[in-house]
Amino acid sequence: MAEKLKIATTSLGGCFGCHMSFLDIDERIIDLFDLVEFDRSPLTDIKHCSEYVDIGLIEGGVCNSENVHTLREFRKSCKVLIAVGACAINGGLPALRNFIPLEECLAESYLTGEGIDNPQIPSDIELPLLLDKVHPIHELVKVDYFLPGCPPSGNAFWRFITDLAAGKTPTLPYDLVHYD
């Protein structure tokens, strides 16, 4: 039997909805384990990618400095990088803040907003800093494939990954392509 494909997954500025939807492949997950093994992923709680990973699935857009580091680690390790879901592809709903200056966002949240006690901007060095704008991941790294949807359905995940595992360029039939 051929060696199993290594898959890593993560959510940057996302809601983990894409990960939930991935699990909608239901019992096919048993078949999936015949094809792949999971590397870094919230599903395994492995914190960093192995040196070589075959497929990286990125959910969410790039909102802060930590997202940048994570995305770069994935790009470095993964042979094939896939932008999964609306946020990774176009920033998604978190990108709504792109229309408000970051200065105002932070001020509203931490300084001047309703009910704020002891107003201050958190400054612990462990906290990632926010980027001026939320970016889709293709503006930061080269992306190999895009799997649209909010979230993409379990069937779309299944089709995409089985195509890749079979060495094919993944394609989706009409009813599996949607942006919402």
Binding site: A83, I89, N90, G91, A95, N98, F99, K133, H135, P136, H138, E139, V143, Y145, F146, L147, P148, L172, Y174, V177, H178, Y179
Partner: peptide, 15 residues
């Protein structure tokens, strides 16, 4: 976009 198989944005967004 669906019918021409648009999977990605290709260009940087203008916002």
């Amino acid at each position: 976009a669906y019918s021409v198989g648009m999977m990605e944005y290709r260009f940087p967004l203008i916002y």
